[in-house]
Computed example of a mutant assay.
Amino acid sequence: MRLVLFFDLPVGTAKQRKDYRLFRKFIVKEGFLPLQESVYAKLVVNDAAASSALARVRKHRPPAGLVQILKVTESQFATMEYITGKRPDFEEVDTMEELLVL
């Protein structure tokens, strides 16, 4: 499943710009990859991982603005159509394989 994160944060003051930078840095560190300027997506293996990621985003939410997360299945995400533009050029991990360390 994918978590699609949308955010619209104010950047009118120096404090708001700092909050924006810290939040963006946090979500990138958490594994969210950009789809658009304020739209990011993350691949999660199950509902428990999705709930955990959602809780971490709630904990690090900025004090102002709008942050939304939409859970979609991998099949739904795969049906996304590009009307204009093209798919981003970054290498994306799109496998559900997990690493087992013994």
Rank of each mutant, 00 (worst) to 15 (best):
A49N: 09
T95N: 12
N46P: 05
L33V: 08
L70A: 12
F77P: 06
A14W: 10
S38G: 07
L9M: 01
L102M: 14
K29L: 15
K86I: 15
V93P: 03
A53N: 00
V44R: 02
F90Y: 14
R24N: 06
L35M: 12
R2H: 05
K15Q: 04
K59F: 06
G65M: 03
D19M: 04
D8A: 10
L35Y: 05
E37T: 12
H60N: 14
P63C: 04
L70Y: 12
R87P: 08
G12K: 11
K71H: 08
R24T: 03
F23S: 01
V11M: 13
T95H: 13
D19N: 04
L5D: 00
A50M: 02
K29I: 10
G31W: 06
L9A: 04
A41F: 07
V45Y: 13
P62N: 06
R17V: 07
D89N: 12
V4P: 03
S75V: 12
P10G: 00
Q36R: 05
T13S: 14
Y40V: 00
L66I: 14
L99D: 11
K15P: 03
R58D: 04
L54F: 12
K25V: 10
E98P: 01
V44M: 03
F23L: 02
A14L: 12
F23I: 03
K42M: 10
P62I: 06
Q76H: 11
E98T: 14
P63R: 06
R61T: 08
E98K: 13
L22G: 07
E91I: 08
L9T: 02
V11F: 06
T73R: 04
L66F: 13
I69R: 03
L54M: 14
M96F: 11
L9W: 02
A53C: 07
Q16P: 03
E98D: 09
P88N: 01
K18W: 11
K59P: 05
Q36E: 06
S38Y: 02
T73P: 01
E91C: 09
L54S: 08
Y40F: 06
F6H: 06
R87Q: 15
L70T: 07
E74S: 08
F90T: 13
E91R: 15
L22M: 12
F7P: 03
S52F: 13
E74F: 09
P34F: 04
K29A: 15
I27F: 02
V28M: 11
L35T: 03
D94W: 09
D94R: 09
M1F: 07
Q76R: 11
R21M: 00
R21Y: 05
F7G: 00
V67H: 03
K25F: 14
S52A: 15
V57Q: 00
T13W: 04
